[in-house]
Design a binder for these strands. Structure first.
Lengths: 208, 208
DNA sequence: GGAAAAACGGACCGGCAGTCCGTATAGTTG
DNA sequence: CAACTATACGGACTGCCGGTCCGTTTTTCC
């Protein structure tokens, strides 16, 4: 009775080995473009054929890596506890989401930089982007109406793009400064109040 | 004394031929990564050696193209007539600059997209970026104080990045909608008022 | 007109993405 | 446990591309 055979154990092992090796090499070398597929295969301890059979091509590998990395964060936003997840006030949540995204990218700096630069237009081809955008747009609409919510959500996300973060960090900005800047942007977009009272979004951590 | 010889005529001719060919090919193929240097050389009617002697490598070629394209716009901002150039009120000028940048990128869509994606971090290695940023930061500081002006200037520029524009256009947005979105973002950042009434940039007394 | 500087061009080199297929192995069945 | 089959493995192989090198051609200057 041949139904569907399970995925072979060695295949699973190899796939994970490749993803792990790729993540490390991309991070080490600061960009997927700077690592050859041969190097990845060798570091993972598999043949080149295996690598390409699994992931199709370089882009496929990068995409798989993106999905693996963002899944955790996505889960937190979709169904985690407030303020990131549902339940918090929309204004609070906008800041929480942006802040989480920023911190996530700071924590995975070389990798996320590599991933967003995978190829032309890649940050916008990433499936996760749609999610962040839809989420932010809905929240913005709640806070300040539907007008321009679409574009403004894109603008907020653009402000935490990996290469901008990289640029600022290299220019000497501290993570705290970036968080503070992001918060200021969010405040401005949310309702304009620059003063804390109008839309006091409780300060999250960094700006302590 | 004959210390310096002039640049040879054929060198000038060839350099321009290469730049023109590269611009066209990049635009046609939607990205500098998708065009081989051989193709560029052939399209320009020069040998490969000539191409590399002039521009060093692919990056150098792209950079030269960027400079050539942005020079006009730069001149307008630095020393053109208001509202783009000096003389206009800072709040007006912020919008004018952003809007000009947006329109410029819309007009040169495939090329600018290609240029900004030249390689990792490229939009921020572009010399012109420093100019736009410094300009916007100064203007923002005038309007709303120095606090966060640095980051907010970056955020504004991030909102008109070529790949975002490309994404939005492909998603069906009209240029008008993009301008409108940009304007909304600028209003929010400038002083917070979103509705034309509630708190425009403050009182816009025309005659200062 | 002629010599030297400058530039030209395309053959050439090393390396890399992606393919192909003979071999090895996990899983299954009796 | 042994045989058997589907599945996966791996690395040799191919074609292409970025960048170099150097003999040849063009420009400039006197």
């Amino acid at each position: 009775m041949s139904g569907v055979r399970k995925e072979r154990a060695d295949a699973v092992r190899n796939r994970e080995a490749v993803l792990a090796a790729a993540a490390r090499l991309f991070a080490d070398h600061g960009g997927p473009e700077r690592v050859s597929m041969d190097d990845i295969a060798q570091a993972a301890g598999v043949g080149k054929g295996t690598l390409f059979r699994r992931f199709g091509d370089r882009t496929g590998l990068v995409r798989a890596l993106v999905e693996q990395r963002t899944e955790r964060l996505r889960a937190q936003v979709v169904s985690g506890p407030p303020p990131l997840g549902p339940g918090a006030r929309p204004d609070v949540r906008v800041l929480a989401v942006l802040d989480a995204l920023l911190r996530f990218k700071l924590d995975n700096r070389p990798l996320m930089l590599a991933l967003e630069n995978a190829d032309v237009g890649s940050p916008y081809q990433n499936e996760a982007y749609e999610l962040w955008h839809a989420q932010l747009m809905a929240l913005l609409a709640e806070v300040r109406g539907h007008r321009d919510a679409d574009f403004l959500a894109h603008a907020l996300l653009a402000a935490v793009r990996s290469d901008l973060i990289e640029h600022l960090v290299r220019a000497g900005k501290s993570p705290g400064e970036l968080c503070e800047g992001t918060a200021a942007l969010v405040r401005a977009v949310l309702g304009g109040a620059d003063s804390p009272e109008a839309g006091k979004v409780e300060e999250k951590g960094e700006a302590g």
